[in-house]
Simulated assay, not measured.
Amino acid sequence: MKKYIINTIKFLIYLSIGAFLMWFVYRKYDMQEIQNTLSKGVNYWWILLSMVAGLASHFSRTIRWQMLIEPIEKRTRITNTFFAVMVGYFANLLIPRMGEISRCGVLSRYEKISVTRLIGTVVVERLIDVVMLLLCLFLVLVLQFNVVVNFLSKNTDFSKVSEIFTSFWTYVVIAGIVVVILVFKNSFAKSAVFFKIKGLWGKFSEGFLAIKNIENKGLFIFHTVFIWVMYFLMIYVCFFGFEFTSSLSPLAGLSVFVLGSLGMVAPVQGGMGPWHFMVISSLLMYGITKTEGAAFALIVWSSLNAMIVLMGIVSLILLPVINRSKS
């Protein structure tokens, strides 16, 4: 009961933050103008195709995760693994960053395998995702350098960021942490908590290093690239659903996708607010008006997250059903 209350409070806090950021981004827009923009016509077949691309990326992620798990545990059932992935995405919409733990917990429950090792494999996945995002960002910087520099110069205050690294108090905090670690290092190393953490770290390391033992590394790389191509298509195909974005190039789609992905880093449900801001701002670079960009961001974000909510609920319903005989 206590855990339920804590999670409810977390959900409400993050939802409040996300709602505030959404209001902050859209506060200057006339919602009637956005509605008029949408009333000109939206081809929802392209939006549906975007959702299909999203599902394809999630299925590919399922197979890639199986490939990481198999060397350290066993080959998991594709249905359990896919539904666990979808539950993870759904959980991230409830409490940001909870999805990674949630999908490990779900798969551990139904496959009877170590949740700690699973967490190690998820960390590997996230590191790979960071590398792929950086590669995509590099492509944008190379191919759209002038456009991106113009965007950053108008939307980022570099001086405030640099102040964090040059502040006296930053170094004081770092020094304080180092002193505390040195003082309590020996006593902590003899405690029961240390040996518990050491045991968990061993299992975590097995999961983290699983990538070395993957049999078909070529297939693993294929799925990694495929996932990110589908991520890109989730945004780009939506361009054809709106008259004002239908003529934009794939490079514009890449820029919107990458800069929008940076907005997803914010710890709010589905990047609510920051993602919209980044997408609207990046579309502005290509001559799309703020009202049109706001309408585009609203429809695309809502449809993709509606798909995650639907699949998350379906997964929660079907998981105990398909595993009933095993139970």
Rank of each mutant, 00 (worst) to 15 (best):
V179N: 00
T8G: 15
F244R: 06
I181V: 13
P71M: 00
G263L: 04
D129I: 03
N155R: 02
L298A: 11
L251P: 05
F222S: 00
F59W: 09
F188W: 12
D30M: 05
G199W: 04
Y44R: 05
M278F: 15
L93D: 00
S191Y: 02
F188G: 07
P250T: 09
V115S: 10
S167V: 02
L318S: 08
G41I: 03
G18P: 03
F232M: 09
K198F: 14
E125Q: 04
E215D: 14
Y236W: 13
V106H: 03
S246Q: 12
W169M: 10
F20N: 09
A306Y: 04
L284Q: 14
L134H: 01
F168Y: 11
T289S: 14
S167C: 04
Y231V: 12
F20A: 14
A91G: 03
I5V: 15
V321K: 10
P274K: 07
G120N: 02
D129Y: 01
I235F: 14
F194K: 11
G54I: 04
I34Q: 05
I308V: 13
L304Q: 14
L68R: 06
M1N: 11
K2W: 07
F20S: 15
L49W: 08
P267K: 10
I34L: 11
S261A: 14
L143M: 14
L318T: 07
L68E: 07
K326P: 00
E215I: 10
I181F: 14
L233M: 14
D129H: 04
F257C: 15
V52N: 03
W65C: 06
Q35H: 10
C136Q: 11
I177M: 11
M285G: 08
L254R: 05
G253W: 03
W45L: 09
K198T: 10
V300W: 07
W23Y: 15
S327Q: 10
F257Y: 15
F257K: 04
G263R: 00
V148P: 05
L93A: 04
V183K: 10
T116E: 00
R103C: 00
V178Q: 01
V193M: 13
V122P: 02
I119T: 00
W228L: 04
L49Q: 00
L152Y: 08
R61W: 01
M311L: 15
K154F: 09
V258W: 01
V52M: 06
F24Y: 13
R324N: 08
N155H: 09
P96L: 09
